[in-house]
Every structure is written in C-alpha cells, then in structure tokens.
C-alpha cells in the first residue's frame, strides 16, 4: 500500500509518457497529407530498387564481448547489493566481494586477450 502511494505520481506520469508518441501520431492524422505513389512504401535504398530481404542471418564479430557482457552484468547486480549494504557488512563480507570482482576481472582480461586472435 505504501509502495502504491509512493509511486502513484510516477505511474500516472508513465501513462502520459507512453501515450505521448501514439497521441502525437493520432493527432497528426487530421493535418497530414496522404499521397499514394509507386515508390512510396518501398524500402529505402538510396534510389535503387532494393535487392533481397534485410532480415538475414549474418556474422557479428563481437560475440565474445557479448558473452562477457552477460556475465559482468550479473556481477554488477550483485555489486549493487553489496554497495548499499556496505557499512552493515562484516570485514570479511567487504573483502569477499572485492576478491570476487578481482577474479572476474582476471577472467575478462584473459577473454579479451584470447579474443584478439578471434577478431576477423
């Protein structure tokens, strides 16, 4: 109940913010022109006829970064908890998080060193 009361203005604001763009498009419907032409709805490709689909599978080269990003994002979530409760933790509790972070940093360093050979 307290939470609802505390966040009520944010909730109302969220409705306004999320409705802002659709409302603008809906309102502009009454003012904007509507002219059909042959090329109007084609995919933009600098004046030439588009060739093939764009929704294809292709190789993106930063997958190693993607993997360590997922790992590190989770680590930072733990780190956030650790930071706000820092002064209430015991000395060992403070230390272990630092050790944990240090170990992961070594892992990131290793992954990046290995990645240098993988980048094409």
């Amino acid at each position: 109940m307290m939470l609802v009361e505390e966040y009520l203005p944010v909730a109302i604001y969220a409705v306004l913010a999320m409705g802002f763009a659709p409302l603008a498009w809906w309102a502009s419907r009454f003012f904007r022109p509507e002219k059909q032409s042959e090329w109007r709805n084609t995919t933009y490709e600098c004046g030439s006829k588009p060739i093939g689909e764009a929704q294809v599978q292709f190789k993106f080269q930063y997958y190693m970064f993607g993997i360590i990003f997922v790992v590190f994002d989770l680590v930072v979530a733990f780190l956030m908890l650790w930071t706000v409760s820092f002064s209430a933790l015991s000395d060992m509790g403070k230390l272990w998080a630092v050790v944990f972070l240090g170990m992961l940093l070594i892992g990131v360093g290793y992954a990046l060193k290995k990645e240098a050979a993988l980048w094409i």
Binding site: W25, S28, F31, R32, E34, N41
Partner: peptide, 8 residues
C-alpha cells in the same frame, strides 16, 4: 507534424 505517415 505535418509530414506524411509512411510505413514501408
């Protein structure tokens, strides 16, 4: 605001 609404 006065521009056409185009969806490819």
């Amino acid at each position: 605001f006065l521009k056409e609404h185009i969806v490819p």
